[in-house]
Amino acid sequence: MIVALLVILVTIGSVIFHMWSPWWWSEIASNWQGMDDTILLTFWITGAVFVAIGLFMAYCIWKYKYNKNNKADYEPENSKLEWALTILTTIGVIALLAPGLIVWNNFVTVPKGAYEIEVVGQQWYWMYRLPGKDGVLGTTDIKNINDDNPFGLNTDDPHSIDDVLIDADDLHLLKDQVVKLNLRALDVLHDFYVPQFRAKMDMVPGMITYYWFTPIKTGTFEILCAEYCGTGHYSMLGYVIVDEEEDYNEWLSEQMTFEEVLASNGKSDLIKLALNKKNDL
């Protein structure tokens, strides 16, 4: 009896915890409502299965408790029942999978005209690069990295010179603008994750990964590193600030371009080289 009650308690208790739990996701600030919806759908389906199995088991424990005058049924198998359950499960699985794949398809298909931003992770802070006036991110090579060129930009790439560099400061995004994040790591794996945006992707040294989203709410959001990256992993935090257009432009105008960074470091010959190339275009 107690055991049956326990099973009921655990089953129903889980449901009650779920309904009244104050611990739940914070309001979404990106276009990935589809992910939340798929989670909720999954909750309904799996929750129903969980409750059904729990309660049925409790019933069995209560009803078929041992009695030495009773004898259990002798029923090696019941093909009909087993197949019915298999088909039912398959339908449930399809119901879960189909919406999931649709959302994933959206996630991996970057819309045309997305604003490309580069995020660079290294132990244990973030750097960002915006494409600048020409709207194209310059190419990089890890071999170029030095104190004057922390991003490793190719100085002979004409697109590099006007790139806006944000070194260990907050990243600002424009509300309702589709952004594609190009993710790069210099040393080990990292993962650029803002809980309110839902999306995340690992950054892998030696390659460029990406994901896209549209911020739909203004505000300040905390960035977490979501892939273990060594002793300082827990402190690899940062902020993304989503602005309306006016604030965004004001912020953007205060940022330094690669050209300005090099100039401030006294590397004007490199700038000349790059500018010449640009004029050739």
Partner: peptide, 22 residues
């Protein structure tokens, strides 16, 4: 059953995006 069902969250690729590494 509980752990198996939460596996359906994580296995379903789009749902895994927000939940992985948490």
């Amino acid at each position: 059953v509980n752990g198996g069902l939460t596996g359906l969250f994580l296995g379903n690729v789009a749902v895994d995006v927000p939940l992985s590494d948490t």
